[in-house]
Simulated assay, not measured.
Amino acid sequence: MKEKLKNAMQTVKYIATTTDCWTAHRQSFIGVTAHWIEPDTLERKSVALACKRLKGTHSYDVLASALNDIHSEYNIREKTVRTTTDNASNFIKAFRVYACEDEGSSTEDESKGVNDSEEEDAEEETEGVEVEALMEEEDECSEYQLPKHHRCACHVLNLISTVDARKAESNVMYKKISRAAFAKCSALWNKSARSSTAAEVIERECKLQLIRPVETRWNSLFFAVERILRIIREMTTALKVPMFSPAELSFLSDYASTMNPVSKALNILQGEVDVCMGWLVPTITLLTVKLDRLQTSSKKEYSSGLEK
C-alpha cells in the first residue's frame, strides 16, 4: 500500500500537507496528510501518510524531525510546497527555524503583527549579532528541511470566536451575566451526563438530548447553547431545576445569534471535498458583513429600549 501511494505521488508536481499532534491516554502522536490535484482529472486527492507515536515533549525540533522524516519517507520533501498546522507555538517555531527560505521572516512578522509601512518609517537601528548563533542556525536549517508554513484559517477563526471573545468579560456587567448564564448551562450539561435518569427524562419530555460542549471540537459550545434554547421550557420543568432569568435567556439568545454566522463560516471552510483557498476571502468578507449587521441591529434595539 505504501509503495502504491509513493508511486501515485511521484507523478504529481506539487503537494501540500497538513499535520497535527495530540496526546491521548498519556501518549503523544503526530498525524500527517497529503493533498494534491490530479493532473488529468483535476480531482482533489487526499491521503493519510502517517499517524506515528511521538516520545518526549512536543518541542519544535521533535516536530520538525518527525515531519521531515515523513516527507522524506514518501519522497515528497522537494515537491511539498506548503504545510498547514494550527497556531501552536511549537509548530510556529519549527517552521520559523527549519523552513530556511523566507518563511522565517514572514512567520515572525505574522506573530508580532508587524506593519510594513510603520517599519519603513521607523529609524534604522544597529543590532549586534553573534556569529556562533548564525552558524548554529545554518546547521539547523541543513539538518531538517520543512516547506513553507500556513496557519489553519479555521483554527484562527475558532480562536477569535472563543479565546478572543472572552475579552468581552472586561465589562463587569457582561461578565456577571455571562458567568451566571453559562453556570446554569454547565449544571444542565453535567446533570444530563452524570445521570442516566435525567438524560431519559430530557429525551422523553423534549424529544431531544442535550449536546455537551467539547473544548477541542469547533462550534460545540454554540451547538450546545442552541440546543438548550430549543428545549429550555420543557427541560427545566421536567428536571425541576432553576429557570433562567429573562436577562440570562436574552444573553444566551444573543450569543447564539452572534455565533451562528461564525459557525456557518467554519463549516464552509473546514469542508474536505469542495472548499479551496479561493473560498477564504469571500467567506470571511460575508461573515464580517453579517456580524456588522448584527452589531447595528443590537445598537438600534438598545437605543429604542433607552427611549422607552
Rank of each mutant, 00 (worst) to 15 (best):
S72N: 11
I76C: 02
K299A: 14
A193W: 02
W218H: 07
Y144A: 01
S298T: 07
V201M: 15
E138C: 07
I76P: 00
I160W: 03
D61P: 02
C154P: 00
C51E: 07
K112V: 06
S220L: 04
E108Y: 13
R212F: 03
L294V: 00
E234V: 05
M235D: 01
S257H: 09
V214T: 13
R227Q: 11
A181G: 02
V201C: 12
D86K: 03
K6A: 01
H58Q: 03
G278A: 07
A24Y: 12
H58E: 03
S196C: 11
I70A: 03
L252S: 05
G128K: 14
E118A: 09
D69C: 07
I76W: 04
R204D: 15
P242S: 07
E307G: 00
T285Y: 08
S178E: 00
N115Y: 04
Y174E: 04
D102W: 14
E110H: 04
E226C: 04
R53L: 14
L210M: 09
T23V: 14
E127W: 10
R227V: 06
E73V: 03
L239I: 08
E137C: 10
K148P: 00
L229T: 06
Q209S: 15
E38M: 06
S89T: 13
R212V: 14
K176Q: 09
